[in-house]
């Protein structure tokens, strides 16, 4: 049995099913990160003193990571636009770049974590470090998850372009919506943890 509305818009929602699905998932993600941001605010307001992020964390590395993620976001959307323009080669290049930028983000993050551990700074050391590792750790897991999906769409999953190009384009759009959300979360994490 065919899965309905993978390409055509459902009459009642006006869009294909996966798009509504990913937006519902992203709504739940907003609440997940929202709960942690709310915890951050409560912990900070209740703390007698709170360190400035820049005094413990590396702002240059975090700025580099911000640049890497926004670069990955633009290449992600360009990969989808390439499919819309039927340029499969360009799609592969842009999605490949997205994967490389994502990998770059993870490498920089691992250097950051490594530097903290070498200075014996662990989640249990202070409330600031606990919330820092919780928020960035959850975000890193999201980056990793997005990269696994993107790698599949770049590699074996790309076979679908030959058999069902419109459905494949929609898959890339859905993966892109998730990836942009991960970028969006970092846009808020960066000033909140590193600069304030």
């Amino acid at each position: 049995m065919d899965i309905p509305y993978t390409v055509d818009a459902r009459p009642d929602t006006g869009m294909y099913n996966a798009k509504l699905g990913i937006w519902l998932f992203l709504a739940s993600e907003v609440m997940l990160f929202g709960a942690l941001f709310s915890s951050y605010i409560l912990l900070r307001v209740a703390a007698p003193e709170w360190p400035r992020g820049a005094s413990i964390l590396s702002v240059p590395l975090a700025t580099l990571n911000t640049m890497l993620l926004i670069s990955s976001s633009v290449t992600m959307v360009m990969s989808w636009a390439s499919l819309k323009m039927k340029k499969f080669g360009a799609y592969r290049v842009y999605l490949g770049l997205t994967l490389l930028f994502g990998l770059g983000f993870l490498i920089v993050k691992s250097f950051e974590y490594g530097a903290k551990f070498s200075h014996h700074l662990y989640p249990g050391d202070s409330t600031f470090m606990a919330i820092y590792f919780t928020l960035t750790g959850l975000h890193v897991l999201h980056v990793l998850g997005g990269m696994i999906v993107n790698a599949y769409l770049w590699g074996p999953g790309a076979k679908m372009w030959k058999t069902a190009p419109e459905q494949f384009t929609n898959r890339v759009e859905v993966a892109g919506l998730y990836w942009h959300f991960v970028d969006l979360v970092w846009i808020f994490l960066f000033p909140v943890l590193y600069l304030l």
Binding site: S73, V77, G176, H180, L184
Partner: peptide, 9 residues
């Protein structure tokens, strides 16, 4: 964030 949501998304 609005730029990302408005244009990329």
């Amino acid at each position: 964030g609005s730029l990302v949501a408005s244009f990329f998304m």
